[in-house]
Design a protein around this nucleic acid. Sequence first.
DNA 1: TGTACATCAGTGAACGCGCGTTCACTGATGTAC
DNA 2: TGTACATCAGTGAACGCGCGTTCACTGATGTAC
Lengths: 218, 218
Amino acid sequence: MPRVSKVQTDKNRASIELIAARLFLEHGIDGVSVAELMGAAGLTHGGFYGHFDSKESLAAIACGKAFEQSAQRRQEKIDHTDSPEAALSEISNAYLRSEHRDNPGNGCPVLALATDIARTAADKPVRAIYLEGVKQMLATLSSLSPAANKKTTQKTAQTGNHPLEPQDNAAQQAAMIRMAILVGTLTLARATAGDPLSEAFLAAGRAGIDQSVAHSTE
Amino acid sequence: MPRVSKVQTDKNRASIELIAARLFLEHGIDGVSVAELMGAAGLTHGGFYGHFDSKESLAAIACGKAFEQSAQRRQEKIDHTDSPEAALSEISNAYLRSEHRDNPGNGCPVLALATDIARTAADKPVRAIYLEGVKQMLATLSSLSPAANKKTTQKTAQTGNHPLEPQDNAAQQAAMIRMAILVGTLTLARATAGDPLSEAFLAAGRAGIDQSVAHSTE
DNA sequence: TGTACATCAGTGAACGCGCGTTCACTGATGTAC
DNA sequence: TGTACATCAGTGAACGCGCGTTCACTGATGTAC
């Protein structure tokens, strides 16, 4: 049953990318073979190279897809809430939940791919895409920082001479600390899953975010 | 030049374990082959199975070795300082340094192996050893918690009826938040290494630990 | 202490296996008339 | 609109390679006398 319609071909390609994004987050890029990937998409391995130059090339594309989905989920939470504080709280609570811990495939790519990326050569395309994803998540957390909201409002009224004002630095630093708590907590919760410690890490992480917000607004 | 003295045999075995600990932290367990490992120890791959049952078996042993070394480094910092606060500060600052970021092989195994362990089946021996390592690091951070120091002193005078008093929970939670900041920050710093963001994460992480300590002592 | 021999740590070729990738082939799709 | 044919998405066997593991072999070590 070879030669498939143009529409089906595009669907197949999109399906491979989506499945790759999920499987790469779950098992790491090296943890998934091309044959597994294609099998999960209902195809055989030989057709892979009609769609992609190499597995490495797909890795970069799938990584980008994972970041897109992740950013979209964050944006939905921002849209569904009526204040930056509520959005930050919803994003953090969803992040530090056992559902997220147990479903890396539909979870945060910043976390799931971090160690793999750290072990990847600096010139690989996937690294640049990953870095962009980190910056995007950081920008979102930064924009939701209580400290930032108080001050960037008045800043937009100023003439924007410097690209990075001190208050932006403060907001960015607060966002970085929160991002570290999110990533660190879920990393530890995943690595200790099955032990009571895992739930305790999630609870502590949520408390840590709350403390961080309290620290910003006091 | 086969058959080597008993003393040399033991040295070789210890050398393989030490080199495995370093290489597994650097490249992950699946990222190092038995041949590479043995080559780095100045031996050929065939001799491996005279020392170990399997690569998986060595992984558990080497993981334990890595945790031993890590705990020892922490203990040295505690011994060299004259207060729990100073020890916590020294441990955190050493953790969130670019030297640690750039040398995973001699660094924290909790962080370096976290994602690999999360992807490992629950019944593998290496998981239990990892969990023990996490608990040990957490216990140390807990014992250095400013909140804990104030209160456990008076607790030792009490009759220890409950194994976990509320103040212990508070100290443990504070330690978990700090551990998440340490692990999360360095994870992000490693994954963004080469970009200015990486140093910014390290600086933010140090600030986050300081804030966390301030929050405990206020 | 010196000699004869058994032991066994390390060697390197070989194993089966799964990997990423290639390629001749197939037959439905899409196009030219 | 209907027919003839070129295109090309997907198939599955095959490739070279490196992996973890095995094993017959070697020769210095360690032991028994």
